[in-house]
């Protein structure tokens, strides 16, 4: 496995990923240009998994979005997961999902499930964008607060199974 990051906008982000890489004993590579990214992917092509971190940014910033798109266009074989927060208002979620269409995400990840108690917007977003959910983030602990998303889990979030006590 290898870690790549395109996130150099926040220096702390590189530092943070660097620490994770050190704990896991995996190589990390910061790609500053499309050229960097190409070299790194060529070098790590035999790895089972290459995870690429990208900078988070204001979805209304079309310029940054365009830059990201130029990077991702370099990577035709890469699976792009769009990370959304479960605490975002439903209308904003719809707007963000629509703006990020340009990056052609294939899957969605919802985080911060522990910070909300209304899960409806997750389902409506999934229905709207017609893309599968890959993971759910349920807290800040690494790695135990990231779980594989299943339809059963989402159904349970929306229609919780009542606690039935039998005497």
């Amino acid at each position: 496995m290898a870690l790549l990051t395109l996130d150099t906008f926040r220096m702390a982000a590189v530092d943070q990923l660097q620490q994770y890489a050190q704990i896991l004993q995996v190589p990390i590579h910061v790609a500053l240009t499309v050229e960097d990214l190409r070299s790194a992917l060529r070098f790590y092509q035999d790895r089972t998994l290459v995870l690429i971190d990208t900078p988070g940014h204001n979805p209304k910033d079309g310029e940054v979005l365009g830059q990201m798109r130029r990077f991702l266009d370099e990577l035709p074989d890469v699976e792009t997961h769009l990370v959304l927060s479960a605490t975002t208002k439903p209308r904003d979620l719809a707007d963000i999902a629509q703006r990020f269409e340009t990056l052609k995400p294939t899957r969605l990840i919802f985080t911060k499930l522990d910070e909300t108690s209304t899960y409806g917007p997750i389902l409506s977003t999934l229905v709207r964008v017609k893309k599968p959910l890959s993971y759910l983030g349920t807290g800040q602990e690494v790695p135990q607060d990231l779980e594989l998303a299943t339809s059963r889990r989402v159904a349970d979030l929306i229609l919780p199974v009542p606690n039935v006590v039998t005497v």
Binding site: I23, E141, V142, P143, Q144
Partner: peptide, 14 residues
């Protein structure tokens, strides 16, 4: 910190 568990897991491996 938030990576405590990860560190413990990694230590067990290496």
């Amino acid at each position: 910190d938030q990576a405590s568990k990860l560190r413990a897991l990694a230590r067990a491996e290496a």
